[in-house]
Amino acid sequence: MLELKLVKESLFLNVLEAILDLVAVASVSCSSTGLKLQAMDAKGVAFISLLIPAKEFQFYHCDKDLSMGIAIGDMVEAIRSADKDGTITIKASDENFRNITVSIESPECNETTSFSLLLVTLKRFCIPELQGLLKKYDACVQMPSVDFMRICKYLSNVDGDVDISTIDKGIRFFALGKCGCLNVKYMQPEKATDIDISVQAPVSLTLDLKYMNSFAKVSALSNQVKLCLSKGQPLVVQCKIGQKTKSRIIYLLAPKIKG
């Protein structure tokens, strides 16, 4: 049996809200240690992995490993209408593993709304832990998420793809659209800061800007974001969620293949 409890204004729900423009259904695995969500976008070019340890929930109990296909779009839609200070309880039982029950209790505890959400059949991903991958990239950029968001916003002014390339002591974002082009150089400052750019080998990736904007939305839930690039490999965007938590989200985005 699985039971987890969270307040409506929790980071978990904010993250679900933020990934909805990429995915509507997700594979959710729960164990005694926490919850893992994995999802592929409809085009099959972007992958999301979200990990939230059990202790991040107000209450968490899972006595048997479970894997479920959840229409997170429907779940978030139902929860949105609840009072912002309400408490949400999600339950799945072994006896009836065709749906989960989501209950929303008002802050005064005088009103409880419950709805049953049918589980969906979904390919279960068997992706190993992505964390180790981050050491093997040609270039990694640790930057404040506000910088990442601002750069993505600039690039959005030019409707097209974005090229991310390593340059001397930094990286370059370049977008070419119908109305012109936009170039952002992001350099390693001389003094120690919260920016860390490490380049092992030159690399350049062309990426769909629409996805970058979606990633930037979630990184707003964290102070820092890390981009990892390698030739011919998916871009990795990773951020911790919240300040003092071990929750994290990792995105993979396949680069465009020229020619």
């Binding site: 085009k43 070019v45 991958l133 993979l252 396949a254 680069p255 293949i257």
Partner: peptide, 14 residues
């Protein structure tokens, strides 16, 4: 489609 293949191959090699 080529991006999909790239991502699939990436997972296969993990």
């Amino acid at each position: 489609a080529s991006e999909q293949v790239l991502l699939q191959k990436f997972f296969e090699h993990m």
